[in-house]
Amino acid sequence: MSNQAQEAREALGARLRGFRKDAGFASGRAFAVATGWAESKVSRIENGKQNASEDDIRVWCERTRNQEHIGDLIATVRHIEELWMEWRRLFQNGAASRQQKSLPVYARTKIFRIWHPTVIWGTLQTAEYSAEVFKQVVQLYEITNDDSDAAVAKRLERQKYLYSGNRIFNVLLAEQALYTTFGGPDVMKAQLDRLLAVMRLPRLSVGIIPRDARLAVWPGNSFSMFDDKLVLVETYSAEISVTQPKEIELYAKAFALIKQSAVYGQPARALILSAVQHFDRAR
């Protein structure tokens, strides 16, 4: 969990602890008896070790006679959940809705900083490559509403921002991203051809980190920066939204350090063409 989400959860727990004590429950055990909960649950919520659900908030406020705070605290819970959103919850209605959600963020962003160590960034993907990615998403998260075609369409819709407005796209890919195979050699060759084509766009900068490059910082997870207002970090379990200025500064510093190892222009194209030759031989 990001520092901001954890701090918010701990602050919520401290506030609920205050409600409990003010209501005359001297211990977590006494409150657990009154609510029918396990004592460990009360302790975890108060110490920021467990998320409180909206129902938990209602029960807590009713038992401590703080009903007037229910709306405010539920809003706090929802904000914490937004900072740490599990993929299973995001995909409970399919994958397309998550892609749709990104469009307004792209529309208002002026400067993008993207780091992907193993996969081609979604906005630069071909339809075929993207479809193979979403096949894996559906399998991993056991999405029952398989709307992969709609998800691909929404992902490709983001490409319009490459051609409109004065947005600046700074994209860093590790050389491994050129070889991570989705769909076989033909799909990969088409994807690499697409990458070579978009590199000519005037407001898109694509840097490649050679596999033998010395790094000033370890690669870490992929992340996307939207101006200096939001960073999205993807893990297997969740998408983390970083909005705290100090944390955003840290990601900006990491991006600058990774960028020091990147090659651009003809050296970057040469790495991509080597990958194309690799998939030619694999056919």
Rank of each mutant, 00 (worst) to 15 (best):
R200I: 01
E234R: 15
I57S: 07
A52K: 14
R200N: 05
V119K: 02
V138S: 01
N3F: 05
L12M: 05
V33A: 15
P202W: 02
E81L: 04
W87Y: 14
A96N: 01
E132K: 07
M199K: 03
D212Q: 07
S261T: 03
P202L: 04
L178F: 13
E7K: 09
E157C: 00
N51A: 05
W37L: 03
A11G: 00
R283L: 05
S102L: 14
P267H: 06
R15M: 14
A23D: 02
F91I: 04
Q277S: 15
W115Q: 06
A150F: 02
S102C: 09
R113N: 07
K229V: 13
D212H: 11
Y161Q: 06
I272Y: 09
H278P: 11
I258L: 15
E128H: 12
N166I: 05
R108V: 10
T118I: 10
S130L: 13
G94D: 05
S130C: 14
A197M: 06
E81M: 05
R63P: 08
P117S: 03
A153L: 04
R65S: 14
G122D: 03
V119G: 03
T144V: 08
R211T: 06
A174Y: 15
A14R: 15
D56C: 13
D227W: 00
Q50C: 09
E46W: 06
E46I: 13
L172S: 11
G265V: 13
Y236W: 11
Q244F: 00
L178R: 05
K21P: 02
Q125V: 07
A5N: 01
D146P: 14
R108F: 00
D72V: 14
T109W: 00
R20M: 13
M199L: 07
I45G: 10
G220R: 12
D72K: 14
V105K: 11
A252C: 07
A262K: 06
N170R: 12
W37H: 01
E82T: 10
M1L: 03
E39V: 12
A153M: 02
G207M: 10
V119L: 14
N51L: 14
D56R: 15
P104K: 07
A177R: 00
R211P: 02
I240N: 05
W121N: 09
K253F: 12
L140T: 14
A275E: 09
E62N: 07
V105N: 01
P210Q: 00
Q125T: 00
Q277M: 13
I168C: 04
N47I: 06
F112K: 09
D146I: 05
A282H: 03
Q125F: 03
D228W: 01
N166R: 12
Q50P: 03
W37N: 00
R211A: 07
G28I: 02
Q100A: 10
I111V: 14
S164L: 03
G220C: 08
D22I: 04
Q100K: 04
E239A: 10
D186P: 08
A177P: 07
S2F: 01
V42A: 08
L162K: 12
A32P: 13
L172D: 05
I80M: 03
A52F: 10
V263I: 10
A38C: 10
D280R: 12
A26W: 11
Q176E: 15
N66C: 13
R15L: 12
G71P: 00
R283C: 11
E10P: 02
Q4P: 01
Y264D: 08
Q260F: 03
S274A: 12
Q260C: 12
Y251Q: 01
V138D: 08
V206K: 04
